[in-house]
Measured scan of single mutants.
Amino acid sequence: MALNTPQITPTKKITVRAIGEELPRGDYQRCPQCDMLFSLPEINSHQSAYCPRCQAKIRDGRDWSLTRLAAMAFTMLLLMPFAWGEPLLHIWLLGIRIDANVMQGIWQMTKQGDAITGSMVFFCVIGAPLILVTSIAYLWFGNRLGMNLRPVLLMLERLKEWVMLDIYLVGIGVASIKVQDYAHIQAGVGLFSFVALVILTTVTLSHLNVEELWERFYPQRPATRRDEKLRVCLGCHFTGYPDQRGRCPRCHIPLRLRRRHSLQKCWAALLASIVLLLPANLLPISIIYLNGGRQEDTILSGIMSLASSNIAVAGIVFIASILVPFTKVIVMFTLLLSIHFKCQQGLRTRILLLRMVTWIGRWSMLDLFVISLTMSLINRDQILAFTMGPAAFYFGAAVILTILAVEWLDSRLLWDAHESGNARFDD
């Protein structure tokens, strides 16, 4: 018995066209964080690309023209004298008006014999932002004059995390709450300039795509075929072959399989920071003279006294001054041990922890910024005066060393310790 099946006739004509040209192939790229070699397709503007294995951002879609970056830099340069030299806060102490600005706080630190601690604050609040705007201006002028731009481009990517104007702005709020127990506070004209400078700096850093600047100024022929001998440069993120001198053909720094002496430098910085954190938390970090009496505060006791007036601000200072430094030390110690013992479990967790400490590390400088600003506000000789204690130097040095330890660690070593050939990683 035959089955009668109805015929289905399409209502619209289906047209099949042959592909007349070869589909576009992607360029081969190595991930600078996990060293995976993959094919990167062509990316349009405002599109980002991520590593298929570790999800690290390979290409950032946010990109401004150099002219727009230069305009932002010149605007920031105009704001800087007002943000640093004009009063941020006014207080009335014992019937006398006192003005506080950024430069005055750094000068008070240096004047009291601790120039190293003052230079830490100076670099993060004044030096690094000033280098940022002058570097962008150098790129703008240098591109037109045919100057060598490689050193500036190499420095810009590392400079971003040292620009800490946003953290200093939080420190202004913390210092205001600490001082309000002794005097009446009012915002100064410099505060508005400083807030504007923070906003412009944040926007500029978020749109400063150094890798795209490398592509514009020093374009290189990408690798179009897969080759395990391809290496990625950690300076400019170019994937290719080393030249005859073993250097990256684009930025001219040595092109090595792994960062040289990464573990040794990381261990040295980490152990030194552990040693410095002990006096930083045991010795007094601030000293207040009130009517001839002397009151010393460690980091913890200062947080407890701050909690009596504002528990939320005390929580912020606790996280930045105690929780973050010790968390960074514990995480980095764990990561280094996992590399030495070739741990194969929990790779995803370790990668996330490394990215976390990379982002939060700079916030530990908050305590030094609060001390710097408070020193310029309260300084009335023996009637009422505020000065920093010996722990300030140890704390600042420990924070900087932990930042350097994270920067010096080559994250690809975590993958080397893991089993080879993993296309995915999980716990």
Rank of each mutant, 00 (worst) to 15 (best):
M1Y: 00
M1S: 00
A2M: 11
T9Q: 13
T15Q: 13
E21L: 07
G26D: 13
G26Q: 12
D27F: 11
Q29D: 08
F38M: 10
S39K: 08
S48H: 15
K57N: 09
D60W: 08
G61L: 15
W64A: 09
T75W: 01
M76W: 05
M76A: 03
L77H: 06
F82A: 07
F82D: 05
L88K: 03
D99I: 06
N101V: 01
M103V: 06
Q104F: 06
I106M: 06
K111S: 05
Q112A: 12
Q112L: 05
G113N: 08
A115S: 14
M120F: 12
M120C: 03
F122S: 14
F123C: 01
I131F: 02
S135L: 03
L139W: 03
R150K: 14
L154N: 02
M155G: 04
R158L: 15
K160M: 08
E161K: 05
Y168K: 14
L169N: 03
V170Q: 02
G171L: 00
A175G: 05
S176A: 08
S176N: 05
V179N: 02
F192P: 05
F192Q: 08
F194M: 09
V203I: 15
T204Y: 04
H207Y: 15
N209K: 08
E211C: 12
E211Y: 09
R216Y: 11
Y218R: 08
K229T: 08
R231A: 09
L234G: 06
H237I: 07
H237T: 06
F238Q: 15
Y241T: 01
C248G: 00
C251Y: 00
P254S: 08
L257H: 13
H261K: 01
S262P: 04
K265N: 06
W267I: 06
L270D: 06
S273A: 08
I274Q: 08
L276S: 05
L277R: 02
A280Q: 02
I285T: 04
S286T: 06
Y289H: 04
R294Y: 07
I299K: 00
N310A: 05
A312W: 14
S321Y: 12
T327H: 10
V331E: 03
L335N: 06
L336T: 09
I339R: 10
K342Q: 09
Q344V: 09
L347C: 12
R348D: 08
R348H: 14
T349D: 05
T349K: 14
L353K: 12
W359F: 05
I360P: 00
L366D: 02
I371S: 00
S372A: 10
N379V: 02
Q382V: 13
I383F: 13
L384M: 07
G389Q: 01
F393W: 07
G396M: 02
G396T: 02
A398P: 05
E407T: 15
W408A: 06
W408L: 04
W408G: 04
L409M: 10
R412M: 00
W415K: 07
W415T: 13
D426C: 08
